[in-house]
Design a protein around this nucleic acid. Structure first.
Ligand SMILES: NC(=O)c1ccc[n+]([C@@H]2O[C@H](COP(=O)([O-])OP(=O)(O)OC[C@H]3O[C@@H](n4cnc5c(N)ncnc54)[C@H](O)[C@@H]3O)[C@@H](O)[C@H]2O)c1
Ligand SMILES: NC(=O)c1ccc[n+]([C@@H]2O[C@H](COP(=O)([O-])OP(=O)(O)OC[C@H]3O[C@@H](n4cnc5c(N)ncnc54)[C@H](O)[C@@H]3O)[C@@H](O)[C@H]2O)c1
Lengths: 211, 211
DNA sequence: ATAACAATGTGAAATAATTAACATTTTTCT
DNA sequence: AGAAAAATGTTAATTATTTCACATTGTTAT
């Protein structure tokens, strides 16, 4: 593993993921080289920031031609992906859980949803986009069997803390909580929380104040 | 409008929204006062940060008793809400669009979804959680009639830029793009973009590097 | 009454992230 | 060949955000 990786700013990691997505589209359109200002335009940021991020991962472009699209895609992959891939599970296969499962399935990537969980008897045993749905009591077993390292929580808010605890006990390494209820995890588990209401309220605030 | 509001850091706005949500739950449980360290615990941040945010909005608590829950809820409301409320629309009523519409409807808040749009003939004319679905050709008219100021984009990625343009032309003031495709808007429109893959890749990266 | 404690409020310091400035280099044009 | 243009790479400056450190002050215990 690169020494570089350790010290990459969080924001840079996010942007690398976004650059890669944009680059994949550019590659699909037949572009072989791209300038920092072109990437910047797509992502609504400055060219300097793009160059700095790319500098941080130790890649260097060609003066006057820019960056080799495919090389950059591969390097970003080396940085942010795990070689062997990482398995993910979704807990709570309601509206949001199904939308996410649907969204991910088919996307060829190093991240794949290896199981989904719910409590509803009518859902347990079914398949969602080819992925088995298990009862939450099976979380410990399935997580071990299927080497799942990351959990996405989409249960009703009030159940989120309990589910987080179950997942942590089962050995999960990272959690993505889409519930409005914050959950507690030990320090060794990486936690990311996102709530749409917060985003919307933020947009509303800036709409209100900037005009 | 407060002078204060103008200069609040973006991060503070996000946290205020989160504090309020947590405070509402505390209020519902009958708490009348709360300490900065209690809020901090819920949100996984430091008590100093909570106190600083609260300082920034000009509220002051009671020494030794902490903050009055209801007063704080109301003050945060004064800061981030619009008095009259803001109307929102969702464009693209697929899996994610429906999940979001479902999630928002019923939540009593100053933000309400006033219309949804799609292109599918089978969806146009129907109601989703009591909200009318119109054809995207009606965007300009409906946005004016219903005084919609914010748009949430949940169409397939490739259509997002075109939809953003239509919404901007129709006079939208803020956009929340849940598509993986970045869109362009003029400077006066506030834009927030969020992609789940990026979040998941970020979690995966830190899982990989921190262990 | 007084000391010990536990909370807030905040200037100052530290850290994180972005942006400016510019040296360098390749390409193109004359 | 030499000048002009346009791109990268990077140090330094700036700005944004978080954290430290501590003065202040109600509350509780002795
Ligand atoms: N729908 C959205 O767009 C949206 C947006 C932001 C946040 N959220 C949040 O995501 C969560 C799910 O939203 P939704 O709209 O999909 O709700 P939903 O009710 O459609 O789905 C919840 C699912 O969780 C299952 N469930 C309930 N208790 C469970 C438990 N203890 N263990 C496992 N599964 C359990 C239910 O059977 C159901 O399938 C909620 O917390 C919601 O606040 C949703
Ligand atoms: N499902 C998820 O969890 C998820 C997560 C992140 C991002 N996304 C993104 O959100 C978007 C929607 O995802 P989804 O799973 O709901 O897809 P979906 O196919 O279920 O829904 C898309 C909807 O948009 C409609 N549509 C198509 N073209 C349109 C146009 N020009 N104008 C208006 N409506 C149009 C379709 O009729 C459909 O109803 C996609 O861009 C996807 O990448 C989805």
């Amino acid at each position: 593993m690169h020494l570089l990786m350790k010290n990459l700013p969080h924001k840079t990691i996010e942007r690398l993921s976004q650059y890669r997505r944009a680059l994949l589209l550019c590659h699909a359109q037949g572009m072989t080289y791209i300038y920092s200002h072109e990437i910047a335009k797509i992502q609504h940021i400055t060219p300097v920031q793009v160059r700095r991020d790319i500098m941080l991962i130790g890649y260097t472009g060609t003066l006057r031609k820019g960056y080799n699209v495919m090389e950059l895609i591969e390097l970003i992959g080396n940085i942010i992906d795990s070689e062997e891939g990482i398995n993910v599970c979704v807990v709570g296969i309601g509206n949001l859980g199904r939308a996410i499962t649907n969204y991910f399935s088919g996307k060829r990537t190093k991240l794949s949803i290896a199981a989904v969980f719910d409590v509803e008897p009518s859902k347990v045993g079914k398949k969602y986009h080819l992925i088995d749905c298990f009862h939450i009591d099976d979380i410990p077993r399935i997580i071990k069997e299927r080497k799942i390292e990351i959990g996405i929580i989409t249960v009703p808010g009030e159940d989120a803390p309990a589910i987080a605890e179950i997942l942590v006990k089962a050995g999960i390494k990272g959690l993505l909580n889409y519930t409005p209820k914050p959950v507690n995890v030990p320090n060794k588990v990486y936690l990311e929380e996102y709530d749409m209401i917060t985003s919307l309220e933020k947009v509303a605030f800036f709409v209100k104040t900037h005009h």
